[in-house]
Amino acid sequence: MKKVIKTSNETKLAVSQEVPSWKRFIAYMVDWYIGSIFTSLPMVLIYMKVTNTQDLNTNLFQYPKQYAILAGCTGLGFALFYYMIVPLVIWNGQTLGKRWCHFKIVKEGYDSIMFKELFVRQIIGILLIEGALIFPSNLLHQVLSLITNINLITPLMYVGIVISVLSGIFVIFRKDQKAIHDLISNTKVICVNNAS
């Protein structure tokens, strides 16, 4: 079903309300890969500098104690840039994966995504609730475990896997193809004819 919407610059775009599940999966894989590399970059550089090695290590428990939290928080900052700033400021509702696959995140009424909805979708929904399948979530679990001295990684990973699988089932079987993060943020993804 096609619908014409107006973007903030009043350019008309023909959009399809439904993004095929396979297209969402491809975009997810691109974002998983690029987001993981981008998040890991400062961590790896800190580890290499501190240990004077060429090891590409992202396991904070193997870092010198005084640098583990610094590396983890820096990595999380890079993740926030990729998953929040890029779609909010740079590519209007698109991460690199969504841009390559020609779809974007919008509010339920087709308005451009704003900070609040993007924060609920990307940070609360994907990073915290569904988070078992992306590296920044694992990194957050490592940082929390280091700060609290409690192993939160394993239980949060299992809970996240269950919720992520359920969210994937939602995308496949719901008529509106909304994942859990779309439902809690009142957003959806739409195809666009160009990478706006």
Rank of each mutant, 00 (worst) to 15 (best):
V106T: 04
F38Q: 01
I134D: 04
K98W: 02
V19C: 06
R99E: 01
I113V: 04
K12N: 12
Y158E: 06
A68W: 07
I5V: 13
D182V: 01
R121M: 03
K116S: 11
G97M: 07
G125T: 01
M114T: 13
I26A: 08
V159D: 02
L45P: 08
E130V: 02
L56Q: 07
T7P: 07
H181N: 02
D31G: 08
S21T: 15
K107T: 02
Q66H: 15
G168H: 10
Q66W: 09
N92H: 09
A68M: 04
V15Q: 09
F81C: 04
I180L: 15
I161V: 10
E10Q: 15
K23W: 06
I113W: 03
C101D: 02
M43D: 14
L156E: 12
M157C: 09
V159M: 07
L80N: 09
M29G: 02
G125N: 02
S137T: 12
L88R: 02
T187L: 00
Y83H: 01
Y110W: 10
F81T: 08
A71V: 03
V120C: 03
A14R: 09
P87R: 00
T11L: 14
A71D: 07
L41H: 10
V4F: 14
K65M: 13
K23Q: 14
N52K: 13
I123M: 04
R24Y: 08
Y158I: 14
P20Y: 04
C73F: 15
N138P: 08
M29V: 15
